[in-house]
Amino acid sequence: MKVLPLAAAALSLSAALFASTAAMAQDAQPQTAPVHNIVLVHGAWVDGSGWKPVYDRLTKDGYHVTIVQEPLTSLDDDVAATKRVLDQQDGPTILVAHSYGGSVITEAGVHPKVVGLVYVAAHAPAVGEDESDLGKGMPSYTSKQPDAIMKTGDGYTYLNPADFAKDFAADLPLKQAQFESHSQILTAAKVFSAPMTVAAWTTKPSWGIVAADDKIINPDLERWYYARAHSHTTVIPGASHSVYESRPKEVTAVIEDAAKHVRS
């Protein structure tokens, strides 16, 4: 008759152990589940609408995606705009940038909700560095063309519309590239020479995409940035600086890889 209480006790202990194990597994789950939030940051001369092909794919796959619209008036202003969007996220976030936006996320990426960075044909300076000086060491095709980058009397820049299609968007349909050339956001020249005060890639994991036919940023500079940051690097052959628009499938795959493998 004493067997029954012993059996009951064993069953009770087994149930307790099972519940404890299940609870531990549940507690560990957020560290292995894909990050849900993605924030996309555009570069100079363009706005966030260029991210739409990537946005459509990410949202179809169930991600919560927000696009920052920076004013492009100063690095501080653009970092502040990005941090406002990060503040609105409900948890761990992958922060993604194109071109000059790489400098923005290098600063803004220290935000506590950011758990990973993705650089898409983007700059990634270190503390004390700025992309203008780094670009002089490995000049781009565009930087060597007379009058390709124009400047207004009050210190704002834009890409000469005559050069936009071949330099910025050679693998986009011509009409789309021409439209973008005439809808540029004039960008303060000082954003390109603003030195980094922090570098988020030194403390957070990063992914990098090299646009192999980039004329705005030297692809060798992109490779150098990502090698220095120990980024998971993908090279997309034939891609122009507009890789985020022209190759959205490949760019989305890299972002989702970051979301799935970073520890949140």
Rank of each mutant, 00 (worst) to 15 (best):
A22Q: 06
S140L: 15
G50N: 05
T233G: 10
I236P: 05
N218H: 04
E245N: 04
Q89H: 05
L95D: 10
G62T: 12
P146M: 08
I216F: 00
K151C: 11
G101M: 07
T252M: 12
I216K: 02
E70V: 07
G62Q: 08
I149L: 11
K113P: 01
P139T: 11
I105V: 11
P30T: 14
A212D: 13
H64V: 15
V115D: 13
D78L: 13
V198P: 02
T32N: 12
R223H: 09
P125M: 10
G102M: 15
Q31W: 15
R57C: 02
V104T: 11
P237V: 02
K144Y: 03
Q69P: 01
K83A: 11
G208L: 07
H230S: 13
Y158M: 11
Q69H: 03
I105G: 10
H98V: 02
E70Q: 03
V39N: 10
H36S: 13
K52G: 00
R223N: 12
I217S: 03
A188T: 13
D167I: 02
A148Q: 04
Q26K: 06
V251C: 10
D214W: 05
K113T: 07
P161W: 12
Q69Y: 01
H230I: 05
A177C: 09
V118M: 10
D257V: 07
D77R: 09
D78S: 13
A170L: 02
G50S: 02
V46R: 11
N37H: 10
P173D: 05
G238L: 02
P34I: 15
S143D: 14
V191W: 09
L13C: 13
S143K: 09
A23C: 07
P112T: 03
S74K: 11
Q88Y: 10
Q88W: 07
A16D: 06
E107Y: 01
M196G: 12
A19Y: 13
Y100Q: 06
N37Q: 10
A165L: 04
P237R: 00
E245M: 11
D27W: 08
H230C: 05
Q29K: 11
E250C: 03
V46N: 13
A121K: 06
T73F: 03
S132H: 05
K60A: 15
T187M: 06
D47V: 09
T202V: 09
E131V: 08
A25G: 02
Q31D: 13
S246T: 06
A170K: 07
S231Y: 08
S246L: 00
R228P: 00
D61V: 02
D78K: 15
D78C: 10
P53S: 06
D56L: 01
